[in-house]
């Protein structure tokens, strides 16, 4: 199968997956107790008032009708209107994608070179002190949950030493990059371990493989063998992990957003679910589903390019 038809098939499948996710999310949110009117009424749950809110929001219309209407708007990129605030859902999405994308991009830009370098170094010096040190540090970082690491970093560097701003409250992320330092460290801590371990393992395997031995017998230079022949093969398994990490980052890492006050997709999701703001939740589901499908598709294509022998399973 050639690359183009493979891509087309995967894209079509992706579309079906997005629709399935959106429908499932709709059903699940419907299954939650209470609706937007109940959530909005809060500690003033006068039944008469809830009924009025429900009517004002159009929640008294049949569920199916509202879902179909919402689906019909999708091809026009019309995500509907937030029940609670009356603002278009697209405003929420566009507003929140910015911070999430900035964090995800910067994390990936730092993550890839650092983790590949760490993995390659460890593999080249397999069993050495450096290898063991890199392994210990990355495994140690991996074992700390994000929120715990975030809390410690804020307490030490944000509050006690006052070197860095402890939160990003009210800040514009790009014009005040200092607020991004601590969140980036937290976001990098775990993926660095998982990816560098995979690169290391792949590299160790590749360096011990027949074709590397053959390349050596042919008298190719060691640098060329390592980086032009062994490394691409070693990266293929790591690419899938990078895809998972990207997906995780694009989903808005809720804990990191909450602790550092970054109003990204995770924050919008938490607020929307608590407020039973169904159109916003569905809009987010579309964004998450599309990004998951796209990221995995890209990852498969990249893996295919790096190591063409790899079987690509749809």
């Amino acid at each position: 199968m050639n690359l183009a038809s493979y891509t087309a098939r995967r894209a079509a499948l992706g579309l079906v997956q997005v629709l399935a996710v959106v429908t499932l999310v709709f059903v699940l949110v419907q299954a939650l107790p209470g609706d937007a009117a109940v959530a909005l009424a809060g500690d003033n749950p006068d039944p008469a008032r809830i009924a009025q809110i429900r009517a004002a929001m159009g929640l008294d219309r049949p569920v199916l009708e509202r879902f179909v209407e919402w689906l019909a708007g999708l091809p026009r990129l019309d995500f509907g209107v937030s029940l609670v605030s009356g603002r278009p859902v697209s405003e929420f999405l566009f507003g929140a994608i910015g911070p999430t994308a900035v964090l995800a991009t910067l994390t990936l830009v730092l993550l890839l070179p650092i983790s590949v370098m760490a993995g390659v170094l460890a593999a080249l010096r397999e069993g050495s002190l450096l290898d063991r040190a890199l392994t210990s540090i990355s495994v140690a970082l991996h074992s700390i949950p994000e929120f715990a690491l975030a809390v410690v970093l804020i307490a030490v560097f944000g509050v006690q030493l006052a070197w860095l701003p402890p939160t990003a409250v009210g800040a514009d992320l790009l014009s005040q990059p200092a607020v991004l330092v601590l969140p980036l460290v937290v976001l990098l801590a775990r993926p660095i371990c998982s990816i560098s371990r995979l690169v290391r393992a792949g590299m160790v395997d590749a360096l011990a493989s027949d074709y590397v031995r053959h390349a050596r017998r042919l008298g190719l230079g060691e640098t060329r063998i390592r980086f032009a022949h062994a490394l691409p093969n070693a990266l293929a398994p790591a690419v899938q992990q990078v895809a998972r990490t990207t997906d995780w980052l694009l989903g808005g890492v809720i804990v990191v957003e909450a602790v550092f006050v970054i109003p990204g997709l995770g924050t919008v999701l938490v607020d929307a679910v608590a407020g039973r703001d169904l159109p916003v939740v569905q809009g987010l589901a579309v964004v998450f589903a599309v990004s998951t499908v796209a990221v995995n598709l890209v990852a498969d294509l990249v893996a295919f390019r790096l190591a063409p022998r790899t079987e690509v399973v749809a």
């Binding site: 701003p165 402890p166 939160t167 009210g170 006050v261 938490v270």
Partner: peptide, 21 residues
Amino acid sequence: LEFVIANEESARTNALLGGQV
């Protein structure tokens, strides 16, 4: 007067201690 949003109580505390609010 600027109102900023920080949903977590710990974040409000840290922002205050860090001189951000």
